[in-house]
């Protein structure tokens, strides 16, 4: 319990610094780009609408159902993958600070989590816009999606926190993860509904895949106005908490080496 409490205290005491760093990250992503924030939105829309219409035909699904499904899944998946890949560089990009100032390392974890949450918010807003257009947006759905979002946030903190240490120590990890996530993208029901896999006998890809559960606990309630299967809540929570435990374990053993590895 105490490391967790200490962490909250650090978060509050250094609020100014990590929120500034995060804001700076977001601004620099869109700086000097004429369309700025519109780019990721356009990218998401182009993918969802383009792939949506075509795949709907391939999988024999109604575009009205499938395109909202796709946009939402895409936004959530982008966040899950980015948490891991960007998490790897959380300490790497802060190497100047880590070597010159006695700042708590957690600051750089909070900063990265916040930055990714901001991008998630943009992705979700776009997805919700698409849902609204196809008449699939319900208040009930949004409210029931909140527990899932909370689990996503815990996952992000744990994954970014763990990978910050691992990615600093093993600089090629980020590349390896990018590859793994490309594979996972295909195996996880992001761009096709779970039923398609289950019917073909690949149920394991959904039920033994914690990433699928992470997506389901957010996507399913929003689209269907009811909670997802308990198994998904259990799997995603355990997955998220395992990462949090890993973060504290790595912090305990490797904190002292971080300035040397920076």
């Amino acid at each position: 319990m105490t490391p967790l409490l200490r962490e909250f205290k650090l978060a509050i005491n250094n609020f100014q610094i990590w929120t500034y760093l995060s804001g700076s990250d977001v601004k620099s992503r869109f700086r000097r780009s004429k369309l700025g924030i519109v780019w990721p939105v356009l990218h998401q829309l182009a993918f969802s609408l383009g792939a949506g219409f075509i795949w709907a035909a391939v999988f024999h699904l109604k575009p009205d159902d499938f395109i909202p499904f796709l946009t939402l899944g895409f936004a959530i998946w982008a966040f899950i993958a980015a948490a891991m890949t960007e998490g790897c560089s959380a300490f790497v990009i802060a190497h100047g600070y880590l070597k010159q100032l006695p700042l708590p390392q957690s600051i750089f974890i909070f900063r990265t989590v916040l930055t990714q949450l901001i991008f998630l918010a943009i992705g979700l807003a776009t997805a919700l816009g698409v849902l609204l257009y196809f008449g699939k947006l319900t208040l009930l759905g949004l409210v029931l999606g909140i527990p899932g979002i909370l689990i996503l946030i815990v996952y992000a903190y744990g994954a970014i926190g763990s990978l910050a240490y691992l990615g600093l120590r093993y600089r090629d990890l980020q590349h390896g993860l990018a590859g793994i996530f490309s594979l996972l993208f295909v195996v996880t029901p992001v761009i096709y509904p779970a039923e398609v896999l289950i019917k073909k006998g690949f149920a394991a890809a959904i039920y033994a895949n914690p990433f699928a559960s992470l997506i389901e606990v957010v996507r399913y309630p929003i689209l269907n106005g009811e909670l997802a299967e308990p198994l998904h809540y259990l799997a995603s929570s355990v997955f998220a908490l395992a990462f949090v435990a890993l973060r504290f374990q790595l912090g305990f053993r490797w904190s002292r080496f971080v300035p040397f590895w920076s």
């Binding site: 600070y97 010159q100 904190s255």
Partner: peptide, 26 residues
């Protein structure tokens, strides 16, 4: 300054440290 933890031994710092170890961080 509390940036490096000792590999052996101990450090005690009482008071807030402002390290000026470089001029450009930040």
């Amino acid at each position: 300054s509390g940036i490096f933890q000792p590999s052996h031994g101990s450090v005690q710092i009482v008071g807030r440290v402002s390290p000026l170890l470089d001029f450009a961080t930040g």
